[in-house]
Amino acid sequence: MSNFFFETTGGRVILTFAEALALLVPLLIMVAYLTYAERKVLAAIQLRRGPNVVGPFGLLQPFADAIKMLMKETVIPSGSNRLLFLLAPMLTFGLAMVAWAVIPVNEGWAIADINVGILYLFAISSLGVYGVIIAGWASNSKYAFLGALRSAAQMVSYEVSMGFVIVSVLLCVGSLNLTDIVLAQQTIWFCIPLFPMFIVFFISTLAETNRSPFDLPEGESEIVAGFFVEYSSLSFGLFFLGEYANMILMSGLTTILFLGGWLAPFGVVPFTWIPGPIWFILKVCLCLFVFIWVRGTFPRYRYDQLMRLGWKVFLPLSLAWLVITAGALMLFGWLPHAPA
């Protein structure tokens, strides 16, 4: 009877809403605790304690921060474009949430298991730059504008090599569906045969999410805080949540493309006892830890070095590896058959 209800249009709408809620609530909690984890890990790297006052081990710190952010006043600078100024953080946050619709946490656990899932993710992540540009332009501030321009150039540059990396993975899979990509890794995870691409992809995701050492759009020593200087209160909070949700998204994408998604390592008994979603989350957490570790370790790049790395190192490397991958697949007859 309940099955019959979920076949109707209204039932499907309700079901989709419930699925979205079941994904987004844990995601937002994860975002909150990612900020906590970042502060704790950075503190450990710098031989400090980190947040330890609010709640046991400082575990309630993210909620204290959230309440503080909610209570503050939203300041809209004079001379700013009011509508676009408020639109930009919503866009950033919304895009970071929307992309999760296609991420398969387990086999068949994606809200929308679409044929072109990887292209959808790529499209959504390339839209992320608009939140930054619009914020920078609408703030009517030179620092915000400089940050926005930097960010736009940076994100467009690194998208190119990311695209090539994705294409070389897709060559090995023969499908654009994210579930198929994970299932193609049952024999071996792609991070082993495509190891250089794995590294290029990971570094590109750092640049794509504007994380250090590529956080020039918000380089506080030169342009104060970059594109969100003028934002306060919840509008700032949305940028903040969007950035961390994007980090988790990019880690999820890395997991799906290279670390075998929800598959257990080696596919042997003690590992396969643990259910798939747990593996997925563990792998995402590993990637996130590396994100934070990199932040604690490397100094910020200079802008020309950043551009050089993107265009003169990563682009030729990923292009060459794409040709090598295609050649090897052709030579050894490993080309996957496209699912009809």
């Binding site: 072109v116 292209l119 959808y120 790529f122 499209a123 839209l127």
Partner: peptide, 12 residues
Amino acid sequence: FLAMILMIVYVG
């Protein structure tokens, strides 16, 4: 496919 490519190339 065309929809996604339109988004990636033109919008992105």
